[in-house]
Computed example of a mutant assay.
Amino acid sequence: MVKRLITRSLCCTLLFGWLGIGQAATGEVRLKDLGTFLGWRDNMLVGYGIVSGLAGSGDTPRNQATRQAITNMMSQFDLNLTQDQLQSRNVAMVMITASLPPSANVGQKIDVNVTSMGDARSLGGGTLIMTPLRGPDRKVYALAQGPVTVGGYRYDANGNLRQKNHPTVGIVPDGGVVEVAVRADLVTEDGYLNFVLKHADATTAERIAQRINQTMGGGSARSVDADTVQIRAPGESRSLNQYVASIETLSVVPDQDSRVVINERTGTVVAGGDTRISPITISHGDIRVTVATQYSVSQPDLIGVTGPGVRSLVVGNSEMSVDETGQTVAASYPHGSVGELVQALSKSRVSTRDVIAILEAIKAAGALHADIIVQ
């Protein structure tokens, strides 16, 4: 346990020492990594179908929805069966989900996820029957079919059960085929592109607008709010795809909020190198209270004499000791950073969990100019 705390403290010291370089170490980041253009997003597809070919691990006959789905499917092949005639456990009703890219052509293949909707025990070895995948507008955009790959298993025999992962969830690689072409509409009606930041920040949005104006010409972009930069669309003489690609490759230095992230379960502390601390003195003490109990047995004077009230007596003697070790005192320098403070505490052999408690106390005292996020 002591070795683990020392290792965590050393890792934390190295991490803060590396982050303590300051804002000068913050490099430029591509706009492609800071946000996306409004309208460039994936499209969710969903459908329900049937997985067949299961080795007795499908839905039970009491699942009425599965029997109804099988009846509907067989009626398409001019085979009329009643639900009472369907007693197979080799079929399972499933829900299929997929993600359609922002730009997709007819015939393009996509992966589909398959999840059981009934009481099937496993989808391993099954094959998904052709199923239409619909969008929010109820239109069919893709068709899904193929063998289901399950990253687990379930074997149940004579009361013995062996299971790994979730065998009722699977995937059909390249099992979906796009039937309707999709194109992302990036240009608004008034002829602008909207670049949306992943993390809203007014300073970063203004820097992006200035960088675009320096490269594409004055008046090409302006920051609308903390998370949107409005960019003038190119004319007919220039390709929209070429224009978007040239903007995405531009780089700026994003502004960062001062935050200290604390994970009390693992003892991890992460902070930016520019997180400042006002001059403050820390007094950290450690008091250990130990209670030791010794038990002794008092036997009757005459061995072998029995009777009412004659029995052995267990006597417990407790001893309590208090061990107060020397206090650890650390003082940060004027305009110091969190990294410098943690290095000073580490040299004083303060454990990582104690560092977390100290940082929370500094925040409560108003000397830590950052937001503390506890996970």
Rank of each mutant, 00 (worst) to 15 (best):
G176Q: 02
G176H: 05
G176M: 00
G176N: 01
V177I: 15
V178Y: 01
V178G: 00
E179R: 03
V180K: 14
V180N: 11
V180E: 11
V180W: 01
A181T: 05
A181G: 08
V182A: 05
R183H: 12
A184C: 07
A184P: 13
A184Y: 01
L186R: 09
V187R: 00
V187G: 00
E189Y: 02
E189V: 09
E189P: 04
E189R: 06
G191V: 09
G191P: 12
Y192R: 15
N194Y: 09
F195T: 04
L197A: 01
A202K: 15
A202V: 14
A202W: 04
T203K: 15
T204C: 05
T204K: 14
A205H: 02
E206V: 13
A209L: 04
Q210T: 14
Q210M: 05
R211G: 02
I212F: 05
I212E: 01
I212K: 04
I212L: 08
N213I: 05
Q214F: 04
T215E: 11
M216P: 01
M216W: 02
G217T: 01
G218N: 14
G218T: 14
G219W: 05
S220R: 14
S220V: 10
S220Y: 12
A221I: 00
A221Q: 01
V224G: 01
D225Y: 06
D227I: 05
T228D: 02
Q230T: 12
Q230S: 13
Q230H: 02
I231Y: 10
R232G: 07
R232P: 06
A233V: 02
A233S: 15
A233M: 05
A233Y: 08
P234L: 14
P234A: 09
G235W: 09
G235P: 07
E236G: 06
S237H: 09
S239D: 12
S239Q: 11
Q242K: 07
Y243M: 08
Y243N: 00
Y243R: 10
V244L: 04
A245F: 06
A245C: 03
I247H: 11
E248V: 10
E248R: 11
L250S: 07
S251R: 15
V252Y: 13
V252D: 13
V252P: 04
V253R: 14
P254I: 02
P254T: 01
D255E: 15
Q256I: 08
Q256S: 13
D257S: 10
D257Q: 13
D257L: 08
S258D: 13
R259I: 12
R259A: 00
R259L: 07
V260K: 07
V261H: 06
V261G: 01
I262F: 03
E264Y: 11
E264H: 07
E264I: 10
R265A: 06
R265C: 02
G267D: 06
G267M: 11
T268I: 06
A271Q: 11
G272S: 06
G272N: 09
G272P: 08
G273I: 09
D274V: 06
D274G: 11
I277N: 11
P279M: 10
P279R: 03
P279C: 06
I280K: 10
I282H: 04
S283T: 15
S283W: 08
